[in-house]
Amino acid sequence: MIAIDGVGKWYGPVQVLKGCTTQVSKGEVVVVCGPSGSGKSTLIKTVNALEPFQEGAISVDGIALKDKRTDLPKLRARVGMVFQHFELFPHLSITDNLTLAQCKVLKRPREEARTRGLKLLERVGLSAHAQKFPGQLSGGQQQRVAIARALSMDPIVMLFDEPTSALDPEMVGEVLDVMVQLAREGMTMMCVTHEMGFARKVANRVIFMDRGEIVEDAQKEEFFGQPRSPRAQQFLSKILAH
């Protein structure tokens, strides 16, 4: 589904991704972790071409990002993305947040988009809030709306960039529940997260990044059992200690 092949990226003279190679197959859940500044966000953003990269290749569902003929907006519409800070559009009601891209990008009729949006809102348990605005919801609720918004585009894969790290602890659970449910339904997912409980529960593989490199790319059992690299071991012992 996602193939990342030897990707290198520089910000000016600073290399932030080095020879990153991995893949995510259909239905697979891959968790990406690593210390701050290791390039996790950058890597996940290159997958839907939010960030350009200078070296290597990435393809999604067989479509190469670097190919000049690739219609990037069309591709991005099929890749759902959830951000650390939710990024709901503050001037639009929850319903309009859910229907904007359906109408403008997928050209769905308003009513159809609404129906689809409200169904997803129900699924994340927020039907009662359809008429509200993002500023009137809690962080956890906003993030669930953001997930519903991404799902409203019928994505073939979902990308998450630390979806729970801006949340108060008591709201982390409600967002993770939605993600677990999504994983169980067979959604292909690539998640940057430090929620190791989530990784244990639903991940197939865990990728560990450090200083722009993929240091470890292992099956979940293997990763939590005995990571090979000392850096991953160190990192794991640190975050599991909490």
Partner: peptide, 23 residues
């Protein structure tokens, strides 16, 4: 505006014009 707003709009598949016009 937070940088993420533009990213979120683009990630939903909106083109540059739509990102400015609607978001």
């Amino acid at each position: 505006l937070p940088r993420g707003q533009r990213a979120a709009a683009i990630a939903l598949g909106l083109n540059t014009w739509q990102t400015y016009r609607y978001v």
